[in-house]
Amino acid sequence: MSAALKLENLTKDFPVGKRMFGPPRGVVHAVRPVTLTVETGETLGIVGESGCGKSTLARMLVGLLSPTDGTIEIEGAALDNADPSEFGRKIQYVFQDPISSLNPRKTIRQVMEAPLKHLHSMPKARRRERIAEIFDAVNLREEFLDRYPHEFSGGQAQRIGIARALAAEARILILDEPVSALDVSVQAQVLNLLARLKAELGLTYLFISHDLAVVEAVSDRVAVLYFGAVVEVGRAEDVFRAPRHPYTKLLADSAPVVGRDLKAPEGRETELPDPLNPPTGCAFRARCPRAVDRCAAEDPPLMEMGSGQLAACFNPVPEGEAAK
C-alpha cells in the first residue's frame, strides 16, 4: 500500500506579544515535531483534548496555515505552501460547523462551482453535469442548488460541505469534527455516507474528533495528540482496547460508558502545562501516575510497543491493563 500523506517533523509556532522592534515576548509551540504516514484508502483518527493541536495540524495540511518547519508530502510530492491551489487539488477540508463554513451570500450552486472553475477550469456545461453527479452521490436534490446556506438543516449543510470537497476531486479529506454539531440520528447518516464515499471513490480520511466511540468505529488507525505532539499511534482496536500511554488511558477512562458511574479520572487541582513555559522532559509527567525520574529529564520518543503500536513513554501502561 502506498502512502497518501507523509508528515516529517511538522511544527507550528505562534508568536505572542509582538513588539515593534525585537523578537516577540513569547512563543506558543502549538504543534511540536509531528511525523506521521497515512496510507492510501486509510482512515486515521486523531484524538486529544481541546488545545492539543488537532485543528492547527489539520489547517497546515490544507494550506490554511504555513508550517514553521517540516514537510508535507502528498502522494510522493512535497507541497509548496506558496501555491494554495496545489493543496486544493490534492486535499480538502470538511469543517465542524457546516452552515458557517458556507458563504451566506452565495447560492449552493455558486459554492459548488467555485472549485470546478478555479481548480479545474471546467466549462459551464460540464460544471452543471459534474455538480449533478456529486449531489446524487451525497443524496441531495438538485433543487437545493439555487437556495442559500441558511435554508438548510445541519445535516443537509454538512452533506453540501462534503459535496464541495468532492467537487475539487481531491483524494484526501480532512474531517474536523464533522458530526459533532449534528443530532445523533443525523450523525449516523453522515458517517454512513462518508463510509460509502470512501469505498466507492477510494478516498483517504483524517478524522478528527473528541468522541472516542465515533473515532474507534470509523478509524483504521488512531494517533493521540497531547500538548502538540503525537504520544501514541496504532490500530484503533489496539489503542482503545489496550492503551500503552498513560494519557491515552486517561482519555479512554474519561469516556462515558453505559452502566458505569460518571467519575473524573483526575482531581480538580490538575493543571495543564503552560504553553508559554513548557515543562522539561515529558509534558504529561505532572498528570501521570506512572512518571519516573527520567520523565523530568528527557522527552520520550515514540517507541515500539508491539503489533505496530507506538507510544512515547518510558514507563508505559502494562499490556494487560486495559482501559476501565
Rank of each mutant, 00 (worst) to 15 (best):
G45H: 10
P23S: 10
N103V: 10
L310M: 12
T270P: 09
P104H: 02
T204R: 03
E133T: 07
L206K: 00
L140V: 12
K6D: 14
G259H: 13
E319K: 12
G320R: 15
F144E: 04
F95R: 13
A4Q: 09
L250D: 07
V138C: 14
Y93A: 10
R141H: 14
C282P: 10
A157Q: 00
N9F: 00
T204N: 04
A217R: 07
R290G: 07
A311G: 02
Q309W: 00
R32E: 12
V62R: 08
R171L: 08
M303T: 14
L102D: 00
V179Q: 05
T107Y: 02
L272C: 06
V184L: 11
D274Q: 07
I160Q: 15
R164Q: 06
Y205V: 05
E321C: 01
R32W: 01
N139R: 15
V38R: 02
E151W: 05
R147H: 06
R19L: 13
K117F: 02
L276R: 04
R164P: 13
K106I: 07
R235C: 00
A188T: 10
A170E: 15
A188W: 01
S219L: 06
A322L: 03
V257N: 02
L276S: 05
L79N: 10
A223L: 10
C282N: 12
A137R: 15
K263F: 11
A283R: 04
G281M: 15
A297I: 08
T68K: 12
D211Q: 08
K106F: 01
G161E: 01
G267N: 03
P84E: 07
L166Y: 09
R105I: 12
V239R: 06
E86P: 04
G51Y: 04
R241I: 06
A125I: 01
R109V: 14
A283L: 05
L250I: 12
P279M: 06
D83M: 03
P273I: 01
T71E: 15
R130S: 09
E8P: 08
D176N: 08
A252P: 03
K324R: 14
V38Y: 13
S85C: 03
V218F: 01
D69R: 14
A264L: 08
P33A: 06
A137G: 09
T37A: 08
I160G: 11
G308A: 07
A199F: 00
P178D: 01
V16P: 01
V258N: 12
G51L: 06
